[in-house]
Write a protein that binds this DNA or RNA. Structure first.
Length: 569
RNA sequence: CGGGGAGUAGCGCAGUUGGUUAGCGCGCAGCGUUCGGGACGCUGAGGUCGGAGGUUCGAGUCCUCUCUCCCCGACCA
């Protein structure tokens, strides 16, 4: 490819309000362009990288024994009504209406369609197992897009679905996918880590995410360096401990004027936060839920939502709190009537807690569970934090931000049951097919790669997903010997199977170097009158500071070796 | 949806208490000089000031409505 013909200009300035490195750099490098909120075009350079990632994914999915197919974006709304997932997707579904006033959803994912497809194509255990995938655009009307390609409303996803006769089969499929995913990230040159995850709106049992560590990531990973435990903070657990063993004392009321936060109360009474009980009010699908948790801990809303099995969960607003007759800042579960109470299991640890007195400006001392109050449900609904004890060993948990670049789920049978995907087993008995699903956000992976590999000059692509492998820069295009040598080398490299971007623009050296750095092509070859004097060129890795001088003689082979080795420093 | 901010040339921005023909940098086109880390000179093209309505002799500037975009939260690949 000749740079002079390439569509998409490099920009000196990025949109002022673009904060993420990947957003700024992908726009500046002329790889993507925004069309609407969370909607982007890929320009030729960006599309080349994207296709490389797709190809890697394809080959790994194929290797794992999967078949590629293609399903439509338009999905009859009836399938969603049947699966019962309308409510959990809710407003994120883009719904279009056809000329007959019939409603169709733009696919946010394809479990419904593929389960229906498999229902018609699979009748016998002999047809199973199956691994099926596609790479296709998905549509989700996200409440908020962000960070360029990191979170968008139309995105390219590889979605694979597994169909098995039993749990053991699902385990095999799941393991195959874990290995395939690891291969994908490794081949892209990206060190993704696998963590335990919540299954969210997709539903199902076990679930894992693949994360790329990055400051700009939206997810927090909680991990233990000692035993390798790692989980999304939505899912992570930790061992809750209590420093004090206490003998229950009699309840006592204390005046706490104008103290509504745990911190204020604890300071005022000279106690630790873990000696208090915190009350938090939520609204779950319209019902007020009263939550009790030890004062030093926070409620993990995902855990709470899963526990309550509700579609919508939010902190009660002031109005909702008031309407429920609750006194914010001074509420407690003691003699509370009319509301469902959920307790975190931390309330069992320690005792003689300070809790609200259910009236303004007063708290109660020496509150003990279950002596003084009962709860309807008790479970772990607390946020696990760095510094907590690992749930698997005696190590300490740590945390890091990450970008979710893959998510896999063991779905089980709830979709095949609802959509009628059954098979006959050896004994002629009809059974629901056991499903799993496995997704990679391809565009997000591209952005994550940039987040994770760039410097102040621009992108530093890992070789396997770079738009070109080599940027060939003749420094003076109107100097015939230089340009002739460049053209010759360009032809030789290209026919040698190397992807070369020839910077044939009549620009100054500075412009060419800066653009090559910005676009992030792994290898740069400079030809100038200077190097030609010794029949050589200058070769430099994007990642390295130092360049080296190589003879023109045998250069193609040398470059091919470098590219093959994938060693980009 | 809640909170904050922004829409002026392809991109990044300025535009004072309302006052002629709306500016600057980059980029773009032409000519010339340069050529190893974003060179320079000259010439030139490019704008319904997001949209609609209003106030006014006069609106980029003031008022009302509206659309779009960005950032922070609740969601996800």
């Amino acid at each position: 490819m000749r740079f002079s013909r390439l569509l998409g200009k490099t920009l000196k300035e990025a949109p002022a309000d673009a904060d993420c490195a990947s957003h700024r750099l992908l726009v500046r490098a002329g790889m993507i362009q925004q069309v609407a909120t969370g909607v982007y075009s890929y320009l030729p350079l960006g599309w080349r990288s994207l296709k490389k990632i797709e190809d890697i994914i394809r080959s790994e999915m194929d290797n794992a024994g999967s078949q590629e197919l293609m399903m439509p974006s338009l999905q009859p709304i009836e399938l969603w009504e049947k699966s019962g997932r309308m409510a959990s997707f809710d407003k994120t579904l883009f719904i279009v209406t056809d000329r007959k006033e019939h409603k169709l959803a733009l696919g946010p994912t394809h479990e419904e369609v593929i389960t229906d497809l498999v229902r018609r194509s699979v009748q016998s255990y002999r047809d199973l197992p199956q691994l099926l995938y596609q790479i296709q655009n998905k549509f989700r009307d996200e409440p908020r897009s962000r960070g360029g390609l990191l979170r968008v409303r139309e995105f390219i996803m590889k979605d694979l679905y597994s169909f098995d006769v039993d749990e053991a089969g699902l385990d095999v499929s799941y393991e195959k996918m874990i290995q395939a995913y690891k291969n994908v990230y490794a081949r892209c040159g990206l060190p993704a880590v696998m963590v335990e995850a919540d299954s969210g709106a997709i539903g199902g049992k076990a679930s894992h995410e693949f994360m790329l560590i990055a400051e700009s990531g939206e997810d927090q990973i909680i991990y233990c360096a000692k035993c390798g435990y790692a989980a999304n903070s939505e899912k992570a657990t930790s061992v809750k401990t209590s420093e004090t063993e206490v003998k229950p004392l009699a309840i006592e009321e204390v005046s706490t004027p104008k103290m509504t936060t745990i911190e204020e109360v604890a300071n005022f009474l000279s106690i630790k936060a873990e000696q208090t009980l915190k009350s938090v009010f939520y609204v779950a699908d319209g019902e007020i839920i009263f939550v009790v948790i030890r004062g030093d801990l926070d409620v993990n809303e995902i855990k709470l939502k899963n526990l309550l099995k509700c579609n919508d969960l939010h902190m009660a607003t002031e109005a909702e709190t008031k309407e429920a007759g609750l006194v914010a800042g001074y509420a407690s579960a003691i003699s509370l009537k009319g509301h469902r109470i959920v307790g975190d299991d931390s309330i069992k640890l320690g005792g003689n807690f300070v809790a609200g007195a259910n009236k303004p400006d007063a708290h109660l001392k020496n509150v003990n569970y279950p002596r003084d109050f009962k709860v309807d449900t008790i479970a772990d609904i607390a946020v696990a934090r760095a510094g907590d004890q690992c749930p698997k060993c005696d190590g300490k948990l740590e945390s890091q931000q990450g970008i979710e670049v893959g998510h896999i789920f063991k779905l089980g049978t709830f979709l095949s049951d609802r959509l009628g995907a059954y098979y006959l087993d050896k004994d002629g008995e009809s059974k629901p097919i056991i499903m799993g699903c496995y997704g990679i956000g391809v565009g997000r992976l591209l952005a994550a790669a940039v987040e994770q590999s760039h410097d102040d000059k621009g992108i530093i692509w890992p070789l396997p997903i770079a738009p070109f492998e080599v940027c060939l820069c003749p420094l003076k295009v109107d100097d015939p010997p230089v340009m002739q040598a460049a053209e010759k080398l360009y032809a030789e490299l290209t026919s040698g199977g190397i992807e070369v971007l020839l910077d044939d623009r009549p620009e100054s050296p500075g412009v060419k170097f800066n653009d090559a750095d910005l676009i992030g092509i792994p290898l740069r070859i400079v030809i100038s009158a200077r190097t030609l004097k010794t029949s050589s060129v200058e070769l430099k890795w994007r990642r390295e500071k130092q360049a080296e001088i190589l003879p023109l003689e045998g250069l193609v082979d040398a470059v091919r070796k470098l590219v093959k080795s994938g060693d980009n420093g």
